[in-house]
Design a binder for these strands. Structure first.
Lengths: 215, 215
DNA sequence: CTCAATGTGTAGTGTAGACTACACTATCTT
DNA sequence: AAGATAGTGTAGTCTACACTACACATTGAG
């Protein structure tokens, strides 16, 4: 009786798409700046222009809007992270290029904001967690694992669980830095500092992971 | 005019301490299970017994209660992580012991709950972030860095920034695993799986970090 | 005994905010 | 021209909840 069917309307008309995007843009700005719980749907409509009814037509409810915006955003962010042409580079260079690109993205204030909101809301909205992970961090890990896989096939590195290895590399890259920025305990590191970190990590990782494991 | 002075009352009487603790216990259970925003102060009083007035006398407001409970908790959790006697072990064993202890703590549902709540609330309550970091993750990193420092003094490993190195090791240890558990995307890993992870990380780390860096 | 501090219980107050109702308009298609 | 489809705008309902007020109990010190 009272299942209002949260609409997932594919926008048919051009005008519709514009209005929908305007709502998503406003939601993004406000949610990331003030937090999901602190922003009212009215605030969003005020920011976007347009009308409350439209918001509900498109997204069904506040959660629907939130999920749509997270999905759009995590896809967009990580779409710009490509592993193009990385196979032609020496390993060190490859890891460094991927590493610095990733680090910059991840330390970006917008990405941090999304992370905070997803962590905060995921216990109440489990689908959100998958949406975010598969669209973002999970994809990066997979891309790196694929790279390792190709190298293994070419006998360029010892065989092992490529996904786990990718996770380890990414973990050491972010390390404490991510938490420190998530909690805003220090100001953002400079580009130079990030490059130094990446170099250090890639170096340590290569020594550790590429050697034959013959014990 | 309207600064009600969030009290930080040191409880004078024994009865007072009991009531205060009961409130903190209830707050902990409810906040960690449902989230700060979803729990009302009335819920907490209902759970703790006692009265709303007492809550406000002790903590001033809802935020005060939250901060008191986070502080108590993050201290308690990491207090049980000791680096006792680790200097007498071979490095591999030392890293493995510290690693497995830490991993178990960090993957524990209570610890994850605190992490989620702190991440969620820290933008609105910055002091919280420091409280948590310095009482928890920061202390662990420092303890590990101190250990490295001692080894460097004894020429047992090449000199370098010990704090950064500690961060790298801890980062690779947690890697994706932490996020996956924070978002509840997979069920908790078995003790055996954690041990395997620690071994792998310690091994990779030692190969990479302990070798002389003569380039 | 008494008085001061602390705890209890109830019953508000004020506000914010998610969601709905409804009457109206713009656009497009055939 | 007509009617379907989508957007607008306002006003309102209903509920949840942080925080306060106030009158009453308990305890313990001197």
């Amino acid at each position: 009786m009272s299942s209002p069917a949260p609409k997932d309307s594919p926008p048919t008309t051009e005008r519709g798409r514009q209005r929908r995007d305007a709502l998503l843009d406003a939601a993004q700005r406000l949610f990331l700046e003030h937090g999901y719980g602190q922003v009212s749907v009215n605030d969003i409509v005020a920011q976007a222009g347009g009308s409350l009814s439209t918001l509900y037509r498109h997204f069904g409810n506040k959660e629907g809007l939130f999920q749509a915006m997270i999905e759009r955003r995590s896809h967009h962010i990580y779409d710009t992270l490509t592993a193009e042409g990385v196979d032609e580079l020496p390993v060190e260079a490859a890891l460094q290029r991927l590493g610095i690109d990733l680090l910059i993205k991840v330390m970006d204030e917008e990405t941090l904001g999304i992370y905070r909101e997803v962590v905060a809301e995921s216990p109440r909205q489990p689908p959100l967690a998958r949406l975010f992970f598969d669209g973002g961090p999970g994809r990066v890990r997979q891309a790196l694992a694929d790279y390792f896989e190709r190298r293994m096939q070419r006998q360029l590195m010892p065989a092992c669980d490529s996904v786990e290895l990718a996770g380890i590399f990414l973990g050491m890259l972010l390390g404490e830095w991510h938490l420190i920025r998530v909690l805003q305990l220090e100001s953002p590191p400079s580009r130079a500092a990030m490059e130094k970190r990446v170099e250090r990590c890639a170096d340590l990782f290569l020594r550790g992971a590429m050697a034959d494991r013959t014990e």
